[in-house]
Amino acid sequence: MFDHVKFGVSDFAASKAFFLKALEPIGITIVGEGVPSYGVELAAGGETSLCLHQTNEKPAHLHLAFVAENRQQVDAFYRAALEAGGKDNGAPGVRPNYNATYYAAFVIGPDGHNIEMVCHKPEA
Rank of each mutant, 00 (worst) to 15 (best):
Ala76Cys: 01
Pro25Ile: 03
Val67Phe: 07
Glu41Gln: 06
Ser49Thr: 11
Glu24Asn: 10
Thr29Ala: 12
Ile30Thr: 15
Ala80Asp: 04
Ile115Lys: 04
Glu116Tyr: 08
Ser49Cys: 09
Asn70Glu: 14
Phe66Thr: 01
Thr55Pro: 06
Gly32Asn: 14
Tyr78Phe: 15
Tyr38Lys: 11
Gln72Ala: 15
Asp11Ile: 08
Ile28Gly: 00
Leu42His: 05
Gly39Asp: 07
Tyr78Leu: 03
Glu123Asp: 15
Ser10Phe: 00
Glu47Trp: 04
Thr55Gln: 04
Glu33Gln: 13
Val40Leu: 04
Arg79Pro: 00
Val94Phe: 14
Met1Cys: 09
Gly39His: 03
Phe66Pro: 00
Ser37Glu: 15
Pro25Trp: 07
Leu23Arg: 02
Thr101Ala: 13
Pro59Met: 02
Asp88Trp: 08
Glu47Ile: 12
Ala105Val: 09
Ala65Trp: 03
Asp111Ser: 10
Gly27Trp: 04
Asp3Asn: 14
Glu24Val: 03
Ala60His: 05
Asp3Thr: 14
Ala80Met: 03
Arg95Gly: 12
Leu23Asn: 07
Ala22His: 06
Ala91His: 07
Gly93Lys: 06
Val118His: 11
Ile108Gln: 10
Ala124Phe: 02
Gly112Asn: 04
His120Ile: 09
Pro36Ala: 03
Val94Glu: 14
Ser15Trp: 04
Val35Met: 12
Gly85Met: 02
Ala76Leu: 02
Glu69Gln: 14
Glu83Val: 02
Leu82Ile: 14
Val67Ile: 11
Glu57Trp: 02
Gly8Phe: 11
Gln72Cys: 00
Val67Thr: 12
Tyr103His: 10
Pro96Glu: 13
Arg79His: 11
Ser10Cys: 07
Lys58Tyr: 01
Ala100Asp: 15
Asp3Glu: 15
Thr55Glu: 06
Tyr38Arg: 14
Gly39Lys: 03
Pro59Trp: 03
Ala105Asn: 10
Asp75His: 08
Phe2Ser: 03
Leu23Pro: 08
Pro96Asn: 13
Gln72Val: 07
Ala17Leu: 06
Tyr98Arg: 10
Lys58Ala: 12
Ile115Pro: 09
Val40Glu: 02
Ala104Asp: 12
Pro59Val: 06
Leu50Ala: 00
His63Asp: 13
Lys87Gly: 06
Lys16His: 04
Ser49Gly: 11
Tyr78Val: 02
Gly46Phe: 01
Asn97Cys: 01
Asp3Trp: 09
Cys119Gly: 03
Gly46Asp: 14
Cys119Glu: 09
Glu123Leu: 14
Leu42Trp: 03
Pro96Arg: 06
Ile115Ser: 09
Pro36Gln: 04
Ala60Trp: 01
Phe12Gly: 10
Leu23Glu: 08
Pro122Lys: 14
Glu24Tyr: 01
Ala80Leu: 03
Gly85Pro: 05
Asn89Gly: 12
Leu64Val: 14
Val40His: 01
Pro25Met: 07
Pro59Cys: 01
Val35Trp: 00
Val5Trp: 10
Pro110Trp: 06
Pro92Glu: 01
Ala84Asn: 04
His63Cys: 14
His53Glu: 08
Ala104Ile: 04
Ala76His: 05
Lys16Trp: 10
Gly93Asn: 09
Ala22Met: 05
Ala14Ser: 13
His113Ala: 08
Glu69Ile: 01
Pro25His: 09
Leu20Tyr: 12
Glu24Pro: 01
Val94Thr: 15
